[in-house]
């Protein structure tokens, strides 16, 4: 145990936790916006996989990482259009249509990978950007201020999303639509337009999350996300639909994972119990859901398609 509490290991664990938290955070923030308007998107994992594959493919073909990021975003946007049509126009059951998106993303990204790339190929990595001055802070600077631009983006989006939801008219509309669409509608807010926008934003961020994941790993593999998108959806509940708490959840998740890895490296966790350790985050989430369930109110119109009476 003593090995763990050395500065360099703690710093490395912190940095690793932040890196791991990035895709969760990007996807969960997008999902937060969507859920605030009353739309549940369970297809995040599928959208991430598609975003990841197309970003990876672009990076391989062009060598241009920023173009890859844009393609990831665009892939998310396209899936957003699809999801908006399904849930807003056709008013489909959201819990299940998300599973459709997930299955499509899982299958199609795998198919495309096998046909177009096939073998593991490395792209270059998004270079870490050292923030001047801050990254010079001994130890802490290394952990906090030497990440890729996408990681900073993810964390900067936290206050941005809070601001969007609570300080702008659009945000007010989002919350109104998510809480009481009938009332919002009677006040002249177009419920469907608001929801389409939040869906597009949410899916675009899921696509970005996929790009962030694959450009960090540098290599794509079928089912790269391993269910990460589902955890991101859970983190929204975990964070009670508030971006700072969502961030806390994502960080907790990332740090727990990073700590487990470090403990395995240092031999603190015996190999036998590593599966039990792997259960911990999911159990933790369920416990958090139970604890929060009585105390936090979900957007009242969540998962309910809007029908004008």
């Amino acid at each position: 145990m003593s090995d763990f509490f050395t500065v360099s290991v703690l710093v490395a664990t912190l940095a690793s936790g932040i890196r791991l938290a990035t895709p969760y955070l990007l996807a969960a923030l997008g999902e937060t916006i969507g859920q605030r308007s009353g739309v549940l998107n369970l297809g995040v994992d599928g959208v991430m996989l598609l975003g990841a594959f197309f970003a990876h493919w672009t990076a391989l073909e062009t060598g241009n990482l920023w173009l890859a990021v844009v393609v990831g975003l665009f892939t998310g946007l396209v899936m957003g259009v699809v999801y908006a049509i399904i849930t807003v126009y056709f008013k489909a059951e959201q819990g299940i249509s998300g599973i459709g998106i997930f299955l499509f993303g899982l299958g199609f990204s795998d198919l495309m990978f096998e046909v177009k790339v096939g073998t593991p190929k490395f792209t270059t990595q998004l270079p870490p950007v050292e923030i001047p001055l801050l990254s010079d802070i001994p130890r802490v600077g290394e952990a906090l201020f030497s990440h890729s631009l996408l990681t900073y983006t993810a964390f900067l989006l936290v206050p941005a999303v809070a601001w969007l939801l609570h300080r702008t008219t659009f945000g007010m509309n989002i919350r109104a639509v998510g809480e009481n669409p009938q009332a919002a509608d009677s006040l002249g807010v177009s419920v469907n337009a608001v929801r389409v926008k939040t869906i597009l934003i949410g899916n675009t961020m899921a696509g970005l999350a996929g790009a962030a994941l694959v450009l960090e790993a540098k290599v794509f593999q079928p089912n790269l996300t391993q269910g990460l998108g589902f955890i991101a959806v859970a983190l929204v509940y975990f964070g009670a639909w508030r971006s700072p708490f969502v961030m806390a959840g994502a960080l907790l998740y990332g740090l727990v994972q990073a700590t487990v890895i470090q403990w395995k490296v240092l031999g603190i966790i015996s190999r036998q119990f590593s599966d039990i350790a792997a259960m911990a985050p999911a159990v933790l989430t369920v416990v958090a859901l139970i604890v929060l369930a009585g105390r936090v109110q979900a957007p009242r119109a969540l998962t309910k398609p809007f029908e004008r009476h």
Binding site: S8, V9, V11, A12, T13, S16, R19, L20, L213, E216, A217, K218, V219, F220, Q221, P222, N223, L224, Q226, Q257, A258, I261, Q262, K264, V265, L266, G267, R271, S274, D275, A278
Partner: peptide, 25 residues
């Protein structure tokens, strides 16, 4: 020699993070 079994044949990100942890160590 520090040995870590990630518990997955498919999780590339986990393997990458494990490698990073080894290097940090």
């Amino acid at each position: 020699v520090n040995i870590v079994y990630t518990g997955s044949f498919g999780d590339v990100a986990l393997a990458a993070e494990t490698a990073t942890a080894h290097i940090a160590n």
